[in-house]
Amino acid sequence: MIRIIVNFVKFSVVFAVFIVSYIANAQKLENSLLWKISGNGIEKPSFLYGTMHAVCETNINENVLKAFEQTNQLYLEIDMDDPNLQAAMMNKMMMENGVTISSLVSEEESKIIDIFLKENVGFSLKTIDTFKPFMISSMYLPKLLDCPMKAVDMELMKIATEQNEEVLGLETIESQLIIFDKIPYKIQVEEILKTAKNNMVKDKEEMNKMLSIYKSENIEKMLELSLESENKMFVEYTDDLLTERNKNWIPTIEKVTKEKPTLFAVGAAHLAGDNGVIKLLRTKGYKVEAVK
């Protein structure tokens, strides 16, 4: 009888923990780009901030500046002030095994891409034919905006530099570029061709939606829009681009937050979802709450 009671109590405790965990993960996240991380052995709170790499307005408000005052260092996805960053990118810029953009499309499609690149990037296809397609895509990113492009990451780094705070990275540029290498060149080129054919109309629509949602700080909607994108790279390789990276960052975030108060700034789409950074940290026992 005693053994039955003990087993029942154990089951009840396990079931209760499961329910609490389920509710925490099922709960809708508040609209906020800035989140405070505390508890679970952290002496002083750290902060988590959602960014976008191309915006018109950075959304860096008084709360973010206060978070800077309460922290001692800035962690971005990669260390943007690493002196070896540019060399590392140049080293990984070209496709391997003699593959070229023009070898992955028809002659007529090559002409379409060539005209598009000349008009929007200032290079002919022949000049950058060996570049990895996603590198080329980043070149016309500013053209998707109806304003001078700003990068939230760069603005944050500027503030950190002014405050003599160290800037570090959750991953290396090499590991980030390897992720894109998992996406077949053919799929990457198809996205460039699709953009060239409609002259960026669809891409601009998606960008404008994303900018509007980012301004509203609705991180769940940002993730949702990313997953609904017409871009195959985002939809078919979500695990590589988001989920696995989120999971890989958690041990570093745990270690760093226990050492010194830190401001972590990553793409806003990484924050939301059951496999987003917020809920992954909560599952580990940390208190992660929106800063309003």
Score class of each variant (00 low, 15 high):
residue 175 S to G: 12
residue 66 K to P: 01
residue 30 E to D: 15
residue 236 E to H: 11
residue 43 E to G: 10
residue 171 E to T: 06
residue 263 L to Y: 10
residue 189 V to E: 02
residue 11 F to M: 09
residue 172 T to A: 07
residue 118 K to H: 06
residue 156 L to D: 02
residue 124 S to W: 03
residue 5 I to K: 12
residue 221 K to H: 07
residue 213 I to S: 00
residue 231 N to C: 06
residue 103 S to Y: 09
residue 145 L to T: 03
residue 157 M to Y: 12
residue 74 L to D: 02
residue 25 N to C: 04
residue 168 L to A: 14
residue 133 P to I: 00
residue 104 L to C: 05
residue 89 M to H: 09
residue 45 P to K: 09
residue 192 I to N: 00
residue 199 N to P: 07
residue 236 E to I: 06
residue 204 K to C: 03
residue 136 I to Q: 04
residue 243 T to D: 03
residue 232 K to W: 10
residue 100 T to I: 08
residue 37 I to A: 12
residue 126 K to F: 12
residue 269 A to H: 00
residue 144 L to G: 00
residue 269 A to N: 00
residue 97 N to M: 13
residue 266 V to D: 01
residue 100 T to R: 06
residue 244 E to A: 06
residue 71 T to G: 05
residue 205 E to F: 00
residue 226 S to R: 01
residue 130 T to E: 15
residue 65 L to D: 14
residue 286 Y to W: 11
residue 180 F to V: 07
residue 142 P to V: 03
residue 273 G to R: 00
residue 20 V to I: 15
residue 268 A to H: 01
residue 173 I to F: 03
residue 241 L to A: 00
residue 115 I to A: 13
residue 104 L to R: 02
residue 83 P to S: 09
residue 122 G to M: 07
residue 275 N to A: 07
residue 93 M to F: 08
residue 121 V to I: 13
residue 11 F to N: 09
residue 105 V to C: 01
residue 255 K to S: 15
residue 89 M to F: 14
residue 160 A to Q: 14
residue 144 L to C: 01
residue 201 V to W: 02
residue 150 K to Q: 15
residue 108 E to K: 15
residue 273 G to Q: 07
residue 283 T to S: 14
residue 75 Y to C: 03
residue 46 S to C: 14
residue 201 V to Y: 08
residue 224 E to W: 00
residue 59 N to A: 08
residue 8 F to M: 15
residue 117 L to Q: 02
residue 131 F to A: 11
residue 137 S to F: 03
residue 156 L to G: 02
residue 22 Y to N: 08
residue 76 L to D: 04
residue 179 I to R: 10
residue 84 N to T: 13
residue 245 R to Q: 09
residue 254 E to C: 09
residue 16 A to H: 08
residue 219 I to H: 03
residue 95 M to R: 01
residue 31 N to L: 10
residue 236 E to K: 11
residue 211 L to F: 09
residue 153 D to S: 04
residue 228 E to Y: 09
residue 239 D to Y: 11
residue 174 E to Y: 07
residue 3 R to L: 10
residue 261 P to L: 10
residue 265 A to G: 13
residue 178 I to Y: 14
residue 278 I to Y: 04
residue 172 T to E: 06
residue 38 S to K: 14
residue 200 M to T: 02
residue 6 V to N: 02
residue 203 D to P: 00
residue 270 H to V: 04
residue 107 E to Q: 15
residue 80 M to G: 14
residue 111 K to C: 02
residue 224 E to D: 12
residue 286 Y to K: 04
residue 204 K to T: 05
residue 145 L to Q: 01
residue 284 K to Y: 06
residue 74 L to V: 10
residue 157 M to G: 15
residue 127 T to D: 14
residue 179 I to N: 06
residue 17 V to P: 01
residue 242 L to S: 08
residue 192 I to K: 01
residue 144 L to R: 02
residue 101 I to D: 05
residue 111 K to G: 00
residue 188 Q to P: 09
residue 20 V to L: 13
residue 25 N to W: 01
residue 57 E to G: 11
residue 268 A to V: 05
